[in-house]
Design a protein around this nucleic acid. Structure first.
Length: 228
DNA sequence: ACCCAGGGTCATA
DNA sequence: TATGACCATGGG
């Protein structure tokens, strides 16, 4: 059996178990989630706990600024005040403004997102503060394009299972996942959501093993007795 | 009082 | 190419 094939089988098993263990409906980026919400929260969640993002989103909502249009052209200091709970407020305000400007340049968010996937990804990556992961979050959840969203959990969980490529290059990991798992946007959304739901739980950089994770290895990286 | 978070950019070697 | 500093708030 080829390495790619066994990786695919292993990953399918992992997602089956995660799907049994976690309630995917609790995941916050659902198909019906608005595009504005996805785009804004994708920026806010950079290196940030989701609970902080929620606080920032609530403040934006109160201010009537939970949309790309409303953010466009807003004074940076004002926007920074609103997103402060998400951390690095000045940086994130700038990034949101850059994204809103990009949308405006293309006739609005819907028009921007309706471009072919490759062009859209290029435009996003040219935008200051939007790197590969944020771009793919927007592609996958706001534009509904099939792209594997690689995050710290996807890498960490896979590495601890003993699969996945060496190193941490985004494009390498993405190709590896996509080669192993050919799927549509809905499936890639689910893969990502399940990785995060699980990863938040127990997959710290330096694992402290309190109860074991639901995969075949515990958070310390040791095999769990009796696990499949 | 730590450690951590679903990144990205920039400076250095 | 690869590594480290920096951003900065809130939760465990």
């Amino acid at each position: 059996m080829s390495a790619a094939m066994s990786a695919a089988l292993e990953l399918r098993r992992v997602f089956d178990r995660l799907g049994d263990a976690y309630d995917y409906s609790a995941w916050h980026w659902q198909p019906e989630t608005s595009r504005d919400y996805v785009c804004i929260s994708a920026v806010l969640v950079q290196h940030t706990n989701w609970s902080n993002v929620e606080q920032a989103l609530a403040r934006l909502d109160e201010a009537g600024a939970l949309s790309i249009d409303a953010i466009h052209g807003m004074p940076p200091a004002k926007l920074a005040r609103l997103v402060r709970p998400a951390g690095t407020p000045d940086t994130k305000a700038q990034r949101l403004l850059a994204l809103a400007q990009l949308a405006s340049d293309h006739g609005g968010l819907d028009e921007l997102l309706s471009q072919p996937a490759e062009e859209l990804r290029e435009r996003l990556l040219e935008t200051r503060g939007i790197g590969p992961e944020t771009a793919d979050a927007i592609l996958l959840y706001a534009a509904d394009r099939p792209t594997f969203l690689v995050d710290a959990y996807a890498r960490r969980i896979s590495s601890r299972l003993g699969i996945g490529p060496a190193g941490d290059r985004y494009d390498v990991w993405q190709l590896w996942f996509q080669d192993a798992l050919r799927a549509d946007a809905a499936a890639y959304q689910r893969f990502h959501g399940l990785f995060v739901l699980h990863g938040k739980q127990t997959c710290r950089p330096r694992p402290r093993c309190g109860g074991c994770c639901l995969l075949s290895v515990c958070a310390e990286g040791q095999r769990v007795a009796g696990a499949a």
